[in-house]
Design a protein around this nucleic acid. Structure first.
Lengths: 268, 268
DNA sequence: CGGCGACTTGAAACGTGTCAATTAGCGTGG
DNA sequence: CCACGCTAATTGACACGTTTCAAGTCGCCG
């Protein structure tokens, strides 16, 4: 996939009124064609809020926590993050959003986002009218199925993150984050080649996504580098030793349950 | 609420064929009457799988990870836990299920649970036919709304847990778990009085729910006890100093983001 | 050139895990 | 009824992972 359709800079220069038909995220995530009948794109275009293709600079907010939203944003290009903020300044990234990702399926059914969406790179996104997007769900079963499977994936991702944060070491978490993003980029044809990808996350993003500190992330990544697992500089990342990285992703077992019977539980 | 309708032992002796009309969880969670029109209970009874009210002993599994499930279980009485298992024996509890809780809304839309459900106490549950429960959603808007808000709550809970595990200390997490359960029991009228409740979790459950070890949980709880915050023995817990406990629930701030601009982010 | 954000590195403190030994609690069967 | 065996909880010593604090480098942009 040529870089012109990638996630940085260039895309934002496209004529914003062209719409989904030529959207670079056309084939990704919720917008993906294979799952949807051809007619849906036309209908989608109908529930699209006119004049609502926005461009946001890196590090700005796309969705505010307290606002009510009658519209559902979808990422067209760029990376963003779903973030929970604590009053004392602590932050936790719930998910990294890539082109084609719907910004929280929950917004489809209620106007209250429980979190903030922040642009990581410059981001282009479009917004859709909730009411009408929602009623489209009931007209088009294929679209409903697409949304549902998207929701199930969202949930599975949240559950995975819970396990990672609760039961895995920092090293494991970072390795898994990298592998997971590589996987998602690969599925979207957004790898530069088999092993290299644009990777705009700063170390503090990785820290907020893995529940670690930036300083510790720096240490682990340096170690990965020294071990020849990855190359990571200038917003781009190369997987040098995929198998090694995978091994880091679930090594360092820590057994935590003091109840031995748990490890040989009889069936119900 | 008399103990006979509580969650331990006695309920299992009720005639199991009586059904939702007299279900002790009748007013909780997804089964809650205030949200649903009167006719729904009758319709629910219709999609209930005959002969499918089960009783499971504590520590047994209700749902297995690999199985396909054409039926959706709902907890009638007792406590259960949604659990992810790692190959090396590590465990993470995703949520604690109380009477009236639907066992993972996700099962409504797909047969593949991505986790295990384990009984904490003896548990009574009924199962409903997925196909028909699902089609009921489209007939009865009030039921759909009930399910949707349940789903949103489930998601909000997962997000909260992610933040807790990623960014809060063990002490905070344990305090929050206790407060959260007290809240949920209170909403269901399942407190023995304003401050005391049946609390069947073992320390290893708390450990698996908070991502800590049982030994460490023991230490923190002992400290809570010494500080006069709670009394906790014989499967029952009393809140002695609610305010103090609340303070523990978000004290011990740890700032983790080295990027100062994050703490004064401009709006988009 | 200066300034600022991103990253690196080291030393020390702290939270949490691990291991082990001991006690308390509970259900079962003699 | 007590004794036995198993599970649950407590406690202490120690190890390790992670944070905190601090100083310093690098690169980019105005």
């Amino acid at each position: 996939m040529p870089t012109v359709l990638g996630f940085r800079g260039v895309v934002a220069n496209l004529n914003l009124s062209i719409g989904c038909a030529v959207c670079p995220a056309r084939e990704y995530g919720i917008c993906s064609a294979p799952q949807l009948g051809a007619g849906v794109v036309a209908e989608l275009e109908r529930v699209f809020v006119p004049q609502s293709t926005f461009t946001t600079k890196a590090r700005r907010l796309i969705v505010h926590e307290q606002d009510f939203h009658d519209a559902v944003p979808i990422i067209c290009s760029g990376w963003a993050a779903t973030i929970k903020l604590l009053p004392d300044g602590r932050r936790q990234i719930l998910s990294i959003l890539l082109p084609g990702d719907i910004v929280s399926t929950g917004l489809l059914f209620g106007p209250r986002p429980q979190h903030v969406i922040e642009a990581i790179t410059d981001v282009r996104y479009r917004t859709f009218k909730r009411r009408e997007l929602k009623s489209l769900l009931f007209k088009r079963t294929d679209f409903l199925d697409s949304i549902l499977s998207n929701w199930l994936a969202e949930q599975a991702h949240a559950d995975r993150l819970i396990v990672d944060l609760g039961r895995r070491s920092g090293e494991e978490r970072i390795a898994r984050l990298i592998l997971n993003l590589a996987q998602r980029l690969y599925e979207r044809d957004m790898m530069r080649d088999v092993t290299a990808m644009d990777f705009p996350l700063r170390q503090h993003h990785i820290a907020d996504a893995t529940g670690l500190t930036q300083v510790h992330v720096s240490g682990v990544i340096s170690e990965f580098r020294r071990a020849g697992l990855i190359e990571f500089r200038q917003r781009s990342l190369t997987l040098l030793d995929l198998e090694g990285l995978r091994r880091r992703a679930n090594l360092h077992a820590r057994r935590t349950c003091a109840n031995p019977s748990f490890y040989a539980m009889p069936a119900a």
